[in-house]
Nucleic acid binder design. Structure first.
Length: 584
RNA sequence: GCCCCCAUAGCUCAGUGGAUAGAGUGUCGCCCUCCGGAGGCGAAGGCCCAGGUUCGAGUCCUGGUGGGGGCACCA
């Protein structure tokens, strides 16, 4: 399907050169102009300002616009071209052409506006990537929805997309999980156990109810067979169970990953050490007690005694291996290998992205929470240090989700067991509502998820307004079938102004997909869907099909139009991972 | 203290350097006997402050103010 502003942009730029060739404009090297959608009907459907050319051409903008407009070639999709002061060229869509596009929309069906931007390139979206320590939180859910929608849009734009989930099942977190589950298991067996206080940070423990449930399940299945075991079998059991939980939660909102990547495999393949050696060979690594140039890195004397002890224990005073990330613009160098000999998460993180690039992806997208803002930069510095194309790595950095209940913020912590899960949200609203609400926000904006509103509002929120448009289309076809009315051999020239308004909006879908993909802004589709519904409903009110005063040939044309409209809504909803109901 | 993000209608938020800044929701008023009531029409109501760049700034830059996040040999 044609992306109109592309066509118009090409026409405008060709016209400038044609005007120069004809002597209507002086010779100068013109910058590429870009046609943009108009805000008002009298300004055409798309327009461009030629003011930037005024200095180069040494002419008044209006004269330039007139000279350019004169040379714009006639093509099917352009109705007329007008010039407006102080220097705009306004393009009006050819309405006959637009009416005829109804057939094109129907022909494309579920592949409506499949673009060739990606040209078969391989893209990878990494998202969710939560370690298996508990159910998915609301914040992770936002990343899940944003990541999956981004993947759908990339597919629509012609990329071959892989959805990946990165996890670590070996760290201290997982040991805490194993120990926590062990405690719950013993508790379930009736043994007296000590549950650490939630506020006591020196005794890490996962307090969530899901581990109580799991402990009981384990006790029921295995009796007291595991009482002699340490944390490890519990960790293994918990990990497996929690991954199942996460997977099924994601499935409820129609999200499936193609690949689960275990951080540990980077050690098994020794990629981690190869990357470190490579960095060292390139001179970006040094061994030191503190970062170079950091004079007050160790001043334990100034710390209170108890903290000084803790620092000595956890930090040691030995040499660590540092990455000279400051050479790439970082605030400070980063530790890659602790003095204990154990890598920090930064080293495998860089190795992981080296691995991704080695797997041949052309575009990498990571969906991360804002708390990882500093971290991904280090990864990019690492890639650059290794002479890899760090620019292939793109990040959708989401601001955090604030959950509101009774107008108050709900503080959340997985470890405290205090959080709303993705499942909670789905149960309280619906999968469609969760997807829409978590998507319909710019990633740079904080997202306030008001639970009361989401629950209470479910009868009058945008989700239903959008889906209702699809329902209404389906309804007409049900009724038409009963009355024996069909849309075969429709004369589309009978479509009126109202239908054209919708077709114009429908044509913006291609631009929305393109902008979403180009700027990694999947939220655009959510706002577009609402705009589309806003255009649709008033039209539906007036443009009737099965009405006694509507002549049969008009009814036929309108029915054809609603078939196309239904396809646009289904496609749009599908791109958001939402259902397209026929009844409500 | 340093770094990043945000500030637009009562509330929640869109807005690609271009012409007269848009939705949803809330409030108020009105409409609909035939495929709709989870509907339609209308009204009131807004770019945090101060400079700057530009032919043109909600959008870019600088400095404030207010809010969120990050600044580990944790992940």
């Amino acid at each position: 399907m044609n992306i109109l502003p592309h066509t118009y942009t090409r026409l405008a730029n060709e016209a400038i050169r044609a005007a120069q060739a004809a002597g209507d404009l002086p010779d100068f090297t013109p910058p590429e102009l870009e046609i943009k959608p108009s805000k008002r009907a009298e300004q055409g459907d798309y327009n461009v300002a030629v003011m930037p050319l005024a200095k180069l051409a040494k002419r008044k903008p209006l004269e330039i616009a007139e000279a350019v407009a004169k040379h714009i070639m006639a093509v099917d999709s352009v109705g007329k071209v007008e010039v407006a002061p102080p220097g705009y060229i306004n393009f009006f869509i050819n309405e006959d052409w637009l009416r005829a596009q109804t057939e094109q929309i129907i022909a494309e069906g579920d592949d409506l506006f499949a673009l060739a931007l990606g040209d078969g390139q391989r893209a990878q979206v990494e998202f969710v990537s939560a370690n298996p320590t508990g159910p998915l939180t609301v914040g992770r859910s936002r990343g899940a929805v944003v990541g999956d929608t981004m993947a759908r849009l990339l597919e629509a734009a012609g990329y071959s997309v892989q959805r990946e989930y990165y996890f670590n099942n070996a760290g201290a977190q997982m040991r805490v999980l194993g120990n926590s589950l062990r405690t719950r298991y013993l508790e379930a067996l009736g043994q007296s156990v000590e549950i650490p206080d939630k506020a006591d940070k020196s005794k890490p423990f996962y307090h969530g109810d899901y581990l109580k449930d799991l402990g009981q399940q384990l006790a029921a299945e295995r009796g007291d067979a595991l009482t002699g075991e340490d944390w490890q079998p519990f960790k293994a059991y918990g990990e497996q169970y929690i991954f199942e939980m996460i997977r099924s939660s994601l499935q409820r909102i129609d999200i499936t990953h193609d690949n689960f990547f275990n951080e540990n495999s980077l050690y098994e393949s020794e990629t981690v050490w190869k990357v470190l050696a490579d960095l060292e060979a390139r001179g970006y690594v040094y061994r030191a007690v503190a970062a170079e140039g950091d004079e007050q890195a160790d001043a334990p004397d100034e710390l209170p005694a108890d903290q000084a002890v803790a620092t000595a224990e956890t930090n040691g005073k030995g040499e660590a291996v540092w990455f000279r990330s400051t050479q790439f613009g970082d605030d400070k160098d980063r530790v890659m290998v602790k003095s204990s000999g154990e890598p920090t998460y930064t080293l495998p993180d860089i190795a992981y992205h080296v691995d991704k690039l080695e797997r041949g992806f052309d575009v990498l997208i990571n969906v991360l929470g804002a708390d990882h803002a500093a971290q991904w930069k280090v990864v990019q510095y690492g890639l650059r240090a290794l002479d890899q194309d760090g620019d292939k790595l793109n990040v959708i950095l989401m601001q955090l989700v604030k959950l509101l209940r009774d107008g108050k913020e709900v503080r959340m912590s997985t470890r405290m067991g205090e959080f709303e899960t993705l499942d909670d949200l789905v149960e309280q609203t619906s999968a469609d509502a969760v997807r829409y609400f978590l998507l319909a926000r710019d990633h740079n904006s904080h997202l306030n998820f008001d639970l009361d509103l989401a629950v209470k509002q479910s009868n009058e929120n945008p989700v239903y307004y959008i889906q209702y448009a699809h329902v209404r289309c389906a309804g007409i076809f049900r009724e038409a079938a009963l009355r024996g009315v069909t849309d075969e051999d429709a004369d589309l020239s009978l479509l009126g102004e109202a239908e054209l308004r919708f077709l114009r909006k429908a044509f913006e879908l291609g631009e929305v997909i393109e902008l979403s993909v180009r700027n990694f802004e999947p939220h655009r589709i959510a706002f577009y869907a609402l705009e589309l519904a806003n255009v649709f409903h008033p039209i539906f009110d007036g443009v009737r099909v099965l009405h006694s005063e509507v002549p049969p040939e008009v009814a036929r044309a309108r029915l054809r139009f609603y078939r196309a409209a239904q396809i646009v809504f289904r496609r749009t909803l599908r791109l958001m991972g939402m259902s397209s109901p026929d009844h409500m």
